[in-house]
Nucleic acid binder design. Structure first.
Lengths: 223, 223
DNA sequence: TGTACATCAGTGAACGCGCGTTCACTGATGTAC
DNA sequence: TGTACATCAGTGAACGCGCGTTCACTGATGTAC
């Protein structure tokens, strides 16, 4: 999909990091640390398992080295997830926006892909959207969710749909509309992430039901 | 609202526990521990602050005593929240079901009250609905959310609305409908709980928007 | 009414653990002269 | 071409901490005879 770039996002096995980095090559170690933390997070399925020591071990470094590359543990963890905020935009939202002309159809596609994205690796989703605010470094705090290209793009799509007369914007305009749709999808994903064993209807059925309700409502009388 | 009962749910200050419990009165200590843990959770606003030692301190006991009353920390924590699962049913769902005849109006009321409930003390909500499955003692796991009186009652209300011809049940029937509505509300609350500082439209506006979308849809064409 | 005994709430001290982080350091690498 | 020096990635050892949990115990309370 994207051009060849260093594979920082998703990799299959634990990343290898040969010998000591040369003078200007500290960034390579930094990438290795990020990749190792990412792998650890996915492999363990638990944020708690990602300790500074464990990450250092996985990269083949000693713990103090981590602090040469990251301010502290929270920054490291969130930087891991920043990669996935990018991915969310690059892999889920942007392609649909670029290729699907019909805004309503675009929303449907984004909805399905968003849920898939969340369920594919739940621990990232948990940190990105469900983590304690106090663990979120300030500079990432609100911005990542709201002013990411991501959510902004969705609002744009909704606006387009409203402009083209496809959707009715209520009191709050397109932003509220986007929030409503996102809340439903987020509620769905968050539940699955938190309680994967909870018996529930199939995800795809629920996404469709959410979209249908969102678009057409479930009431019989149009009052 | 409810008859006079020992106030285990919400109290203003840290609970007092005078001297050693008499022979048959171990349960009083147990209640005191639960109340202290609850208070600590609310006061600190963080599950992490609720350690066995901190709870013991708050009650005026030594840590080992906790283990006479609770199997381990997870059980204690979740039992704290079990109180609030009860509250959710008793204070939010049941009163509305008992007093509001119109099922659609009942859903509206429950929606507002549910969101209020969640935002009133976020840390409980977090543990109840957003906590790691592995920290949830097995016997509470799925049951609390789904087969609580709570969610069951909501499904009942939705069923009634469908039976009375007020709502259209889609492919998945009332259960899916209830899930859709709950997902949207949960998504809203969960976001506020996780990122309280995130700029977002006012809650009440969003709840209304969710209800309107859920009931009437936002699409202009009825296709 | 008095005494021996069983019960059981609560204690004191410690277990081992892993955590995030800091410090003064080593030693390889590149650069300036 | 050779040497002194600055840079900087990475280390070893330790800091202090708070955690959940266990153990053998004390001592007050109720009960049986």
């Amino acid at each position: 999909m994207t051009a060849t770039r260093p594979d920082t996002g998703r990799q299959a096995g634990p990343p290898a990091r040969p010998g000591r980095a040369r003078r200007g090559e500290g960034d390579r170690t930094r990438e290795a640390i990020l990749a190792a933390a990412d792998h650890l997070l996915v492999a363990s399925g638990s944020e708690e398992a990602v300790s500074v020591r464990a990450v250092a071990d996985a990269v083949g470094l000693t713990p103090p080295t981590i602090y040469r590359h990251f301010e502290d543990k929270d920054h490291l963890l969130f930087e891991v997830c920043a990669v996935h905020f990018d991915r969310l935009d690059r892999e889920v939202v942007a392609p649909v926006v670029a290729t699907v002309a019909d805004p309503v159809e675009a929303l449907r596609r984004i909805a399905h892909d968003y849920v898939r994205f969340g369920l594919d690796d739940p621990e990232h989703y948990r940190i990105m959207f469900m983590g304690h605010a106090q663990h979120t470094p300030e500079r990432y705090d609100d911005h990542q969710i709201l002013s990411t290209g991501c959510f902004g793009s969705v609002i744009d799509v909704v606006s387009r749909a409203v402009d083209e007369g496809r959707l009715r914007a209520g009191e709050g305009g397109p932003t509220v509309l986007a929030f409503v749709l996102w809340s439903a999808l987020h509620g769905l994903v968050a539940t699955r992430v938190a309680k994967p064993n909870m018996p529930a209807p199939p995800v795809d059925l629920l996404v469709e039901a959410i979209l249908d309700a969102f678009l057409h409502g479930v009431a019989t009388d149009p009052t």
